[in-house]
């Protein structure tokens, strides 16, 4: 599903450069639920951005579903992102002037799907996150948990191969976090491959595999017994 070999990335800081990722090797199979952990500066967000094609590696190989991700121009990257990836952000990143269903249908718009079909699909995914009744509401009329659920519905809308979540519960309280995690676990149960960047142990323990990063290298990569979020709700 996901193959990363000897990945390097550094950022220029003045005349020097900061070596953020120092040779990452990672392989993720379909259906996994992986937590990427690490303190700030460990390179976990950079890794996620590279996996998300929002950033490009300096060195190394990256295959997504056996497609080499390399030297992408902007257009190609946009198309791949649209086709392969769904994003869930800490700050939700919903478009403020679009209502819930319009936000969800946006990736479908960029896939060139017709309006009617878009509407139907978006409503279906909103239904899956339990927000059918909130379809016409603007993001600022929704609670944090609802916003994140809209964002998840949006990430799912394009039926991506891989879901990338960057601190999905970072802006939420414990109860809501557990709700969201429960939902993510359900998605995983249905077979979705999901990568979560987090610094919370609780959240990481709800995944099936934990990768710990430190100073740009993988310190630990272990499969864990998943803690079901439902028991906290």
């Amino acid at each position: 599903m996901l193959e990363i070999k000897n990945l390097h990335k550094s950022y220029p800081i003045g005349k020097d450069s900061l070596h953020v990722l120092k040779g990452i090797d990672l392989s993720v199979q379909a259906g996994e639920l992986v937590a990427i952990m690490g303190s700030s500066g460990s390179g976990k967000s950079t890794l996620l951005n590279i996996i998300g094609m929002l950033d490009e590696a300096d060195e190394g190989e990256y295959f997504l579903d056996d497609v080499p991700i390399k030297n992408l121009n902007e257009k190609k990257a946009a198309q791949y992102r649209n086709k392969f990836l769904g994003f869930i952000f800490q700050s939700f990143n919903l478009i403020a002037y679009k209502n819930a269903v319009e936000n969800v249908s946006l990736p479908l718009y960029y896939q060139g799907i017709g309006r009617k079909e878009r509407q139907e699909k978006a409503m279906f995914h909103l239904g899956k996150v339990g927000l059918t009744d909130w379809a016409k509401h603007l993001p600022n009329e929704l609670s944090g948990g609802q916003k994140q659920r809209v964002a998840i519905a949006r990430a799912l809308a394009a039926n991506p191969k891989l879901l990338l979540a960057d601190e999905p519960t970072g802006a939420l309280d414990t109860t809501t976090s557990c709700e969201i995690m429960e939902f993510i676990q359900q998605l995983n149960d249905e077979g979705k491959t999901i990568l979560i960047v987090t610094h919370e142990e609780d959240i990481a323990n709800m995944c099936k595999r934990i990768i710990r990063l430190k100073d740009g290298v993988i310190m630990e990569d272990s499969f864990v017994t998943q803690v079901r979020a439902s028991q906290y709700v």
Binding site: G52, L54, E74, K75, A78, Q79, R81, N82, K83, F87, N93, L94, I95, A96, L106, P107, Y110, Q111, R154, A158
Partner: peptide
């Protein structure tokens, strides 16, 4: 900027 970033993350091409 943010809105455009979101759109790009969701698959908007530079041309669009």
């Amino acid at each position: 900027t943010k809105e455009l970033g979101i759109r790009k993350a969701l698959g908007a091409t530079p041309k669009s």
